[in-house]
Design a protein around this nucleic acid. Structure first.
Lengths: 138, 138
DNA sequence: TGTGTACTATGACTATGGTCGTAATAATCC
DNA sequence: GGATTATTACGACCATAGTCATAGTACACA
C-alpha cells in the first residue's frame, strides 16, 4: 500500500546563489570547504565559501560532518528542490496549469528519436492513468 | 534556416516577490498604484507598492506612463520570463536535458481528456520537426 | 611541550528587497 | 489665490545574502 509520506519539512526559500551552492554539493558529494571552493570554480574566497555553506547548514538544507576537515553535503535531494521549483514555476508561468508548461518545453527545442519515444511513452502512461481513474470512479 | 536570434536584453534576476508584482501587472494590465495595491490583495501599504513598482521600472521590467495618476505596466511578456525561468530550471533540475523535466511534469499529476490530446499533438509536432530536420540534412 | 600550520568561529561590511513615513509637488475647488 | 486633497519623490529601516578579515582553536611533530 502506498502511504503518501508527508514531507516533514518544507523546502526553505533559496536564493539563486544558494541553489548554486547546493547544486555543487549534489555534483561533488561530501566536500571540505577547500574542495567546495575548487568545485565552484568561482573567484570567491575560502571564508566566503565557509560562511555560505554554514548558512546552508543553519537553514537545514546541508549537513556538516564532525571530522576534522569537516565535510559538507546536501541534506536535500535534487528531487525535493525540483518539486518545489516546479510547483513554483507551474504556478508562476501558467497559473497552475501543467499542460501549457509542457507545451513550452516541448516546443522549445528539438529532440532525438529516443527522447521522442520517451515522450510518447509518458503521454501513454498519462492516458492510461486517466482511463484507470475513469473506470474506478464509475 | 534556423537563425538563433539572440535575445537583445537579458531578463534581470527577479526575486520571488518581484515576480509576484510582475504577475499582477500581467493580470491587471496598466494600473495605478492604488489599483495595483488592490489587485495584489495583500496587507501592504500604498507607498510600499509604489516603491516596489518603481524598482521594477528602474530594472526595466515595467514601464510607467506620464499621465497624472501614472499607470504601470509590464514591459516584459510572461513568455520572456517563462523562457528564462525555464532555461534556469531546465539547467537546474536536469542539467540541460528537457525530456526528464517533461517527464516530471507529466508524471506529476493527472490530466483531462483534452489535455492528453494536447500533449499527443505536441509530441506529434516534435516528431514531425525531427523528421523534417532529418530529411533536410540528408 | 612548545610552535607552526590547518581548520573553524566570529564579526563586519555591502547590496538588495520588502516595508514604510514624511516631505514635496500637482490638481481641485471655494 | 489659498486651502484641501491626490499623487509622487525621497529617504529610512530591517532582514538576508554575498563578501571577506581576523581571531581563535586543534593538530602534528620536532
Amino acid at each position: 500500500m502506498r502511504v503518501m509520506t508527508k514531507q516533514k519539512r518544507e523546502v526553505p526559500r533559496l536564493a539563486a546563489g544558494e541553489l548554486e551552492l547546493l547544486q555543487m554539493l549534489w555534483r561533488a558529494g561530501g566536500v571540505t570547504i577547500l574542495e567546495a571552493q575548487h568545485a565552484l570554480g568561482l573567484p570567491i574566497g575560502y571564508t566566503t565559501v565557509q560562511t555560505r555553506l554554514n548558512r546552508l547548514v543553519k537553514k537545514g538544507v546541508a549537513v556538516k560532518s564532525k571530522e576534522r576537515p569537516a565535510k559538507y553535503s546536501a541534506s536535500l535531494s535534487p528531487v525535493d528542490v525540483q518539486r518545489s521549483d516546479l510547483d513554483l514555476l507551474v504556478q508562476r508561468v501558467s497559473n497552475g496549469q501543467v499542460a501549457p508548461l509542457v507545451a513550452h518545453l516541448v516546443n522549445r527545442d528539438s529532440f532525438s528519436r529516443e527522447e521522442i519515444d520517451e515522450l510518447k511513452r509518458l503521454v501513454a502512461n498519462a492516458e492510461k492513468r486517466f482511463k484507470d481513474a475513469r473506470k474506478k470512479s464509475e
